[in-house]
Computed example of a mutant assay.
Amino acid sequence: MSKKHPIISITGSSGAGTSTVKVAFEHIFRRSQINPAIVEGDSFHRYNRAEMRQAMIKAEAEGNRNFSHFGPEANIFEELEKQFKTYGETGTGKKRYYLHNDDEAAVHNKRLGTSLKGGEFTPWEDIPPGTDLLFYEGLHGGVVDAKAGVDVAKWVDLLVGVVPIVNLEWIQKIQRDTAERGYSAEAVVDTILRRMYDYVHYITPQFSRSHIDFQRVPVVDTSNPFIARDIPTADESLVVIRFRDPKNVDFPYFLSMINGSFMSRPNTIVVPGGKMGFAMEIILTPIIHKLLENKKKA
């Protein structure tokens, strides 16, 4: 953790909806005129798309049915920790981009004068000096790998977990990957099963380390996510917001500001699903301002 160069990390599984949280942070940064260094979690994958396919074939041949993007074998956790540590100490570091498709590649090719394709990485670049904070969004913003001696979470000043209940998470992933990425439902289910070991050991433990968790809970039947045809809407959901340390949380203020909210435990507030983005901005804005105040004092 660093007072001079704060780090904010948004972490959640594939299909969890971290992009929704990213939009809320973008609104906060824009209104508050904050200049963040943005780091994408996918950029710390170990393999590009073609290499990952080959690595999966090799793992399968060796009897490893759990090789996935969720675990340490397919990521460079040590480089992610180094990134956070370096930024916290100096306000600088290195970043790159994983190009999800050819449209993203075209944008960066124009900027860099390269001829990259979707599924590849851009070269590592220096984070420009003078940023106000580092903002990470991805799978492993609070990961710990005790075997490798890696502890990413300890460098993070604000760790936010995005954790829909698992059936909803699977529905969102299946719908996204079939509709937007062209995978069959069977292939997506196979991916979910293959990732389960790493999901249990490297993804979910992060949410016990996070400062705040946002968990979307549908109020419609999601008992069989593998046949669901629709993703429950925001109005068909509640959002459970858990604070690790409720000591200085102004719950009466949040309850007065967020219509329809209520407390379910001394450290937990529940809000209507449609108010999730608003709740995030109400809750997170003063925390971010406090980090920047501490930065100025330091």
Rank of each mutant, 00 (worst) to 15 (best):
S2A: 15
S2T: 13
S2C: 06
H5W: 13
H5E: 07
P6R: 03
I8G: 01
I10E: 06
S14Q: 13
S14G: 08
G17T: 10
T18H: 02
T18W: 04
T18V: 03
T20M: 09
K22Q: 09
F25D: 03
F25I: 01
F25R: 02
R31M: 03
S32K: 14
Q33F: 05
V39N: 10
S43V: 00
S43Q: 02
S43D: 00
F44E: 09
R46N: 01
R53M: 11
R53C: 03
A55T: 06
K58L: 05
E60Y: 07
E62K: 10
G63W: 14
G63I: 05
G63P: 13
R65M: 10
R65Y: 15
R65I: 08
R65V: 02
F67E: 10
P72F: 06
A74E: 06
N75E: 01
I76R: 15
L80F: 11
L80T: 09
K82H: 12
Q83R: 11
F84K: 02
K85C: 09
T86Y: 06
Y87A: 01
E89Q: 14
T90M: 04
T92D: 07
G93Q: 15
G93C: 13
K95F: 15
R96T: 03
R96M: 07
Y97F: 04
N101L: 09
D102A: 00
D103A: 07
V107M: 00
K110S: 05
K110H: 07
R111L: 02
G113V: 00
E120D: 11
W124V: 03
E125W: 04
I127D: 02
G130Y: 10
T131V: 11
D132A: 02
L133T: 07
L134P: 10
L139S: 04
G141C: 14
V144N: 01
A146K: 14
D151Y: 08
K154S: 09
V156G: 05
L159H: 00
V162M: 13
V162Y: 13
P164G: 08
V166E: 13
N167K: 08
E169M: 06
E169D: 10
W170V: 13
K173L: 14
K173S: 09
I174N: 02
I174D: 06
I174E: 03
A179E: 13
R181H: 15
R181T: 11
S184I: 13
A187R: 15
V188Y: 12
D190R: 13
L193W: 14
L193H: 07
M196Y: 15
Y202V: 03
I203M: 12
P205L: 06
Q206I: 00
F207L: 04
R209C: 01
S210D: 11
R216Y: 01
R216C: 04
D221W: 08
T222G: 02
F226Q: 05
R229P: 01
D230H: 07
D230V: 11
P232G: 04
A234C: 05
L238C: 02
R244Q: 03
V249W: 11
F251C: 01
P252I: 03
Y253H: 15
I258H: 03
N259A: 05
F262M: 10
F262R: 14
N267K: 04
N267V: 10
T268S: 12
V270D: 15
G274Y: 12
M276K: 09
M276I: 08
A279V: 08
I283V: 09
T285E: 12
I287Y: 07
H289D: 11
L292C: 09
A298L: 06
